[in-house]
């Protein structure tokens, strides 16, 4: 099994993407014998009702007849009414987990103070609770485009190590795919948590691993069995991440398969 835990279909409002359909992702995957891709629909970051994007992906999956097996994630916006009902429905319809987009949907991964400072509300935590109940993982991408080239209409924010710590520290039974986050920045408290838990996974998208010293730092922060292959397709060239796992001295075969451990029955 070779699983890419970081792929998307859909559109990006700030530049034209290519290879942004299931059919086209399948072409990329087959070129390198990738058997599975974890996928969500980018449109859900921008629609007021994110669930519309989940139905779009569902429709695309119905007509897809390629070789690569797609593992769909439902984009969930916990600030939107009926998110829980919609999220449950998506799992019933065959989605395999949830994706959170806190920066685009305007909430924090940590508990937030609203009107009552003694009772913070943890909106992301509510989704984690549901994921725990349903036994599915949650993916949270730290950022999509490199910050230097983002449109003025895009957000300058990316998720930090503290954001991930706030999300994962309480919900120890929920597998988390922390994609697009530099493993070099995953030290300190985040590294401690990741080592204590075996169900937190990172991907190669933003971490250069050909430099032996950087690679050693990655291994200090993240156990190898929690490093996964991720390409952030269709934003990026997949070959960069293939090189990173092939020439880094990390256990390539393990990295190709590790992502499967986040999902039941894979």
């Amino acid at each position: 099994m070779f699983i890419d835990i970081n792929t998307y279909v859909g559109h990006w409002p700030f530049r034209k993407l290519s290879f942004n359909t299931l059919k086209e992702l399948d072409i990329l995957a087959r070129e390198y014998d990738i058997t599975h891709m974890v996928v969500a629909n980018l449109n859900g970051l921008f629609y007021k009702d994110a669930n519309e994007a989940n139905y779009e992906l569902l429709e695309e999956l119905k007509s897809y007849n390629g070789k690569t097996e797609f593992i769909p994630l439902a984009i969930v916006n916990p600030t939107y009414p009926a998110w829980e009902r919609n999220a449950r429905k998506m799992i019933e319809l065959g989605f395999c987990g949830f994706e959170l987009a806190p920066i685009y949907h305007g909430y924090s991964l940590a508990p937030e103070m609203f009107f009552d400072m003694y009772n913070p509300i943890h909106r992301a935590g509510k989704v984690m609770e549901l994921a725990e109940e349903l036994g599915v993982p949650v993916r949270v991408c730290a950022g999509f485009e490199n910050f230097r080239g983002r449109s003025d209409l895009d957000t300058p924010k990316s998720l930090s190590a503290d954001d991930y710590v706030a999300l994962i520290s309480k919900y120890e039974n929920v597998p988390v795919l922390a994609t697009g986050f530099s493993m070099l920045a995953a030290g300190g408290k985040l590294s401690e948590l990741v080592k204590a838990r075996k169900n937190i996974f990172f991907d190669t998208t933003t971490t250069a691993t050909l430099d032996p010293k950087l690679c050693a730092r990655v291994k200090d922060n993240i156990p190898e069995e929690q490093i996964c292959f991720g390409s952030l397709s269709p934003f990026n060239y997949m070959e960069t991440n293939l090189l990173r796992i092939s020439l880094s001295g990390l256990d390539e075969e393990s990295i190709k398969a590790n992502g499967a451990r986040a999902f039941k029955n894979l």
Binding site: A208, T240, N241, R244, L247
Partner: peptide, 8 residues
């Protein structure tokens, strides 16, 4: 890795 990946 970024650049060799791009050309490949």
């Amino acid at each position: 890795s970024s650049c060799v990946g791009k050309i490949l």
